[in-house]
Design a protein around this nucleic acid. Sequence first.
DNA 1: TGTCATTACACGTCATAACCAGTTATGGAG
DNA 2: CTCCATAACTGGTTATGACGTGTAATGACA
Lengths: 253, 253
Amino acid sequence: MDKPRKKPPALLQVSPVPLYTQIKEILRDRILDGTYQAHQQMPSESELISTFGVSRITVRQALGDLQKEGLIFKIHGKGTYVSKPKAFQNVAELQGFGEAMSSMGYETFSRVVSLKGLAAGAAVGAKLGVGPNEEVVELRRVRYLNRAPISFDVTYVSKAIGERLAKEDLAHRDVFLILENDYGYALGGAELQIESMLADEYLARQLQVEEGAPVLRIERLTMTAEGRPIDFEYLYYRGDAFQYRMRIERSHV
Amino acid sequence: MDKPRKKPPALLQVSPVPLYTQIKEILRDRILDGTYQAHQQMPSESELISTFGVSRITVRQALGDLQKEGLIFKIHGKGTYVSKPKAFQNVAELQGFGEAMSSMGYETFSRVVSLKGLAAGAAVGAKLGVGPNEEVVELRRVRYLNRAPISFDVTYVSKAIGERLAKEDLAHRDVFLILENDYGYALGGAELQIESMLADEYLARQLQVEEGAPVLRIERLTMTAEGRPIDFEYLYYRGDAFQYRMRIERSHV
DNA sequence: TGTCATTACACGTCATAACCAGTTATGGAG
DNA sequence: CTCCATAACTGGTTATGACGTGTAATGACA
């Protein structure tokens, strides 16, 4: 033993998973499987302290996280409650199209219309934080849901990323997931603009709708966890076949 | 002194405002006025402990809140950093139309088209959690931005709330703010569905656009903090004059 | 010079211990 | 029986103290 270990691993915690996370998972399971139901319930903090044998700060961290996820809510002098359904529970989060659809059980794939390098231009350059003459990569895709075209996406990324993306299976994999899992970028958040417009001739052909059909146009600038813009997209959804759903919270600050 | 006070009010805290909130505000100000800048900076936790003379848990609560607001982010072994711009910093929150617009410096008012009681019907009843034959109150308004019509709203609330709303100044006040400030409801969150459609004859007349013009159609079910539905709306925005903007976060659970 | 252990410092996790502030039930005073 | 003070809950806030892990600069050793 030339290297004496200072601290033997503690109590019940062998894995590097924080205690509050473990407790959070247990409680989440109990909520989802109905142990703690509907609109009331949930043991008090002191009860949880006893049953899990942890300190209050740990219990509160677990409960706080669950509250942030929207699974529970607290009322001061009364207690902690399970919040109702779960249908749209966490949909105000940034997801790729495929992610969102597959989690709803839909079958999707994309057809790459084009992928080429070009000058960013003023609008795209400003979003991605590069000069208008700097080269970026533009990716045009049609997204299919159950074999019917549902959206036309134009994606802009930096030249470096774009050249890597060119080698990927873009027909079946989300760009988001490639960026995260394969390239190791931590995605942070996104800024969206949503508006309604009419399909022009080009868009109508891509989406197989009539010219003048209603289209949901979304501009989305996705950023890394550090706040650097990494992906800028124009998304055109068929108005007759797609609804953008989300759940947002009222801030009480 | 028939009632001996156990504990004299502590240190610098006279108001009922939590310490961590005070510290959060101070730090927020320093971020916004540029004391802590751009992409680096931010004193470490121990520095903040000394300068403010509080415990670490208090500092961490303040920093954690700021992180949730998106103003800062932390990197484990390195430190806490100010996240870049702020343009849309907190726009993924539930706001009334007037709230959102006035915070951007626009002048708005609403014209009440009608306000009447009627049977909920299947769709609205399901949303509000009442029977289809139960009476609810329907409020139709046209929202004006700088004296131009920009949206047509149809709002459904319970009979009780609707009858109170009938007495309010709906032309200049948001229903949200009335519910919160005057009636004491704590609003929790909302579920939205956004889609694109074409203006029919009625809608075109209300919004003063051509029939067949693009319209952003939003269904919004607002709930109290306890999760009870309280307000269900159909919002029709002029596609040529309105963009729905928001910022969403990627969940890393 | 390059590798590696040391070290200092950052944020992350957890325990113990109070007291504060709403909520509700209880029991005595009127 | 009503009213109200109190007690016994609940979650909210804060302090102190400790140890964990990740990051980065430093200096010794090879």
